[in-house]
Design a binder for these strands. Structure first.
Lengths: 282, 282
DNA sequence: GTTCCGCATGAATCGATAG
DNA sequence: ACTATCGATTCATGCGGAA
């Protein structure tokens, strides 16, 4: 493994991103401040101004991303006056107009979401993981995120009858001959576009809203070792930490000095002993 | 239980809906034909014309729905040229402009769908269950869909229940223990907005097969017995069948004669023996 | 060293109350 | 009338201390 660079940059992404060269990033994975959330830490962008605020940033992201790269955006609209706000839908449409391809919408199913029950709704247990690309020919290493068949097969495949197998072959869905019995012989299967991870909730000094599994999963899927990962809203530094551990170069940006310090601490902490081959640039 | 009416109507919803009186329906739950470029499938509406096609129908749905009623729309955009089509987002925005409140987006997680992959994506394992309302004061019977509590509670209950068990057992001889309902409540929790139902594989005659659990869940949540349920795209008749079984009046509409016949067969099949109190109106 | 249990808390949401 | 703040509601998870 070559040396890994892990840059943690302090500042406003709208400005800091301009220092990054064109077509250099393989994966952008980020969770920007949601509209009207985290007012105390970040500015607190209203839903009405969210698209306007985000587009200059995504313009820079488009510029720095390689044509084969991927942009993963974690976001979820809040309920407001008994109604879901539509600003995320407006954002998706605006990003498409900006030139992005809206390739996929993964669902992050939060198994341990915030509790609560109200007269008109249940707990919100999912968030959007929106995948955007510059071109249709992006890199995707699907084999890297295969999961043991165990959980899946025990529930479904074991009970497949002989007619099930035959019938599915004759059913010509979309031209893909899905011979189910082939899957029986394998140990690993591909996941779907629904991801189930628990949110991090520890009693320690600082909590990371982003569980490590989330950036880890997308880094595995869309990058190889020595590729470059970017998070323009780094927060407490989860993305940088995971990228470093996985042998990816990374750039993390945040506007809050205390978060930048926290992220730097996470990185350098591990540098002397475990990651002596890594180079920390700040 | 009073007599239940189950109407199966043949025709185009744009016309047939006009025969239904204002403010008479408690729940609309439907899975319209999804937009598709392939004309040979059911419906055959292109993504570009989908909103234009749907709005006259949703206008009628708005008219016939009670102010306390709910409209559940099951839909999912297909991938098209490597990209998710945005017509569903446009539809949500258009429905809001039409006066609907976009109350919630439930996720139907199709847990048992076959693993599969394409060069650029994984298996699509979820669909949108969009909830729209006319007002903020709609009926919602949340207790009807409670689910058993997670495993974590079993350990906790073990200790407390030692004395509780004895008390309950000793009380069982003397009528109903007053605490039984409370104890049951502790074993049941409210669900979230992510629903996990298996897909049905047994329906060869309808392209968009809807598992019974799906309309059943929403009928439980948003209606009581003798309420009125409407499905303007009935398909093979699942909604009518479930509504009848649950003691709800219902109206189902479909434009395909063979589906109407299929749906009628499902209903009348059960009428003589099990549902002799039901009245079939066609 | 395991296993078990207590406890804090997490990108929440609504209705009521206050300014 | 409209905005801002507060209290009540509620459950899965992981950590830390105890058995």
């Amino acid at each position: 493994m070559r040396d890994i660079t892990t840059k943690i940059l302090f500042g406003d992404s709208r400005e800091v991103l301009k220092k990054i060269d064109n077509n250099t990033i393989d994966l952008i994975v980020t969770s920007p401040p949601y509209a009207d959330r985290r007012k105390n830490t970040y500015g607190g962008i209203t839903p009405e101004k969210y698209v306007e605020w985000f587009l200059p940033i995504s313009e820079q992201l488009f510029r720095v991303l390689k044509p084969t790269g991927t942009f993963i955006l974690n976001i979820k609209e809040k309920a407001d006056n008994g109604e879901r706000n539509a600003y995320v839908l407006e954002l998706i449409l605006a990003l498409k107009r900006q030139g992005w391809l809206w390739t996929e919408e993964f669902i992050w199913h939060k198994k341990n979401c915030y509790p609560g029950k109200w007269p008109n709704r249940f707990r919100d247990a999912w968030e959007r993981m929106l995948q955007f690309n510059k071109t249709r020919d992006f890199n995707m290493y699907q084999g890297a995120v295969m999961v043991p068949i165990g959980d899946w097969a025990n529930g479904r495949l074991k009970n497949l009858s002989e007619t099930d197998k035959i019938r599915d072959n004759s059913k010509s869905g979309s031209g893909f001959g899905k011979n189910i019995s082939n899957w029986l012989k394998r140990n690993m299967v591909y996941p779907s576009n629904v991801l189930q991870f628990a949110t991090v909730c520890n009693n320690k000094n600082h909590s990371a809203a982003f569980p490590e599994e989330l950036p880890e999963w997308f880094i595995k899927l869309f990058t190889q070792e020595n590729d470059w990962v970017l998070d323009p809203f780094l927060g407490s530094g989860t993305t940088s930490e995971v990228a470093q551990r996985m042998g990816r170069n990374s750039i993390g940006i945040d506007i809050m000095p205390e978060y930048v310090e926290m992220a730097k601490a996470k990185i350098t902490q591990k540098e002397p002993s475990l990651f002596s081959h890594n180079k920390i640039a700040v």
